[in-house]
């Protein structure tokens, strides 16, 4: 029993999108599906211009609106405070997508990676270059070459057609006592993962010591991704 969440130190963050792409490798995301993404913002007028980059991921809200609106309990809170999604229960009504104020849930019109790896059969240069399908067929039992089988421990390895999907905070890694892959991959150590119920955890200490903000706090979702410091 824990209450997992994350703190993102915006001062450490350099806005590199490394988390976004690392997430794609860990979770077998198609290029246009973003469990981890970012918001960028330029403010002011030359030469007094500000720019900031705010990493964004599922907030694993305590009061998760996606969980509330889901008609089939496919979106649920687990015993460790994660907001998770059960693809077997999901009917693809997409209510959660609309209810999430953070735009952190995406829907699969098709099986992920289909277009890039299975439906692409045309090489640019016949006999000289390849196609997605040709490459995919070189590997047995995996839908695409860099498929990470670890993902399939707790979720569809590649999400099926017609349902939504979202960040699980790498619950499959947490099970093994490891940090989420975005946390490990962040070259700036801007992401800190931990248990907010444990007062001795780094996240609890950081939260106590810093003035933190959450995204769209006014929505009442009680997000568990906190941001500290300025970009």
């Amino acid at each position: 029993m824990a209450n997992y969440g994350m703190i993102i130190d915006l001062k450490n963050c350099v806005g590199c999108a490394g988390c976004d792409i690392a997430c794609k490798t860990e979770n077998n995301l198609d290029h246009d599906v973003h469990w981890s993404f970012h918001i960028t913002e330029t403010t002011g007028v030359f030469p007094n211009v500000g720019y900031r980059y705010i990493p964004k991921l599922c907030n694993h809200c305590e009061n998760a609106s996606c969980v509330k609106v889901c008609p089939t309990q496919a979106m649920y809170k687990d015993e460790n405070g994660l907001t998770l999604h059960d693809p077997d229960k999901c009917i693809g009504c997409r209510s959660c997508e609309l209810a999430c104020p953070y735009n952190c849930i995406s829907f699969n019109e098709d099986v992920q990676h289909q277009h890039q790896w299975q439906m692409d059969t045309e090489p640019l240069l016949e006999g000289i270059t390849s196609s997605g399908k040709e490459i995919a067929e070189k590997f047995d039992n995996v839908p695409f070459p860099n498929y990470n089988p670890d993902r399939a421990k707790t979720y569809d390895g590649v999400r099926r057609k017609g349902i939504v999907e979202k960040c699980t905070l790498c619950d499959h890694r947490i099970l093994d006592g490891k940090d989420p892959w975005c946390v490990v991959s962040c070259p700036a150590d801007a992401r800190i993962f931990g248990d907010f119920d444990d007062p001795k955890s780094e996240v609890s200490i950081l939260l106590a010591e810093n003035s933190a903000f959450q995204l769209l706090k006014s929505k009442g979702t009680k997000p568990k991704v906190y941001y500290i410091n300025e970009f």
Binding site: V67, K68, V69, C70, P71, T72, Q73, A74, K89, I91, C93, S95
Partner: peptide, 12 residues
């Protein structure tokens, strides 16, 4: 399945 996977919080 909505008939048995009921979520009383969900208007839908």
């Amino acid at each position: 399945t909505t008939l048995w996977n009921v979520n009383l919080q969900s208007v839908m």
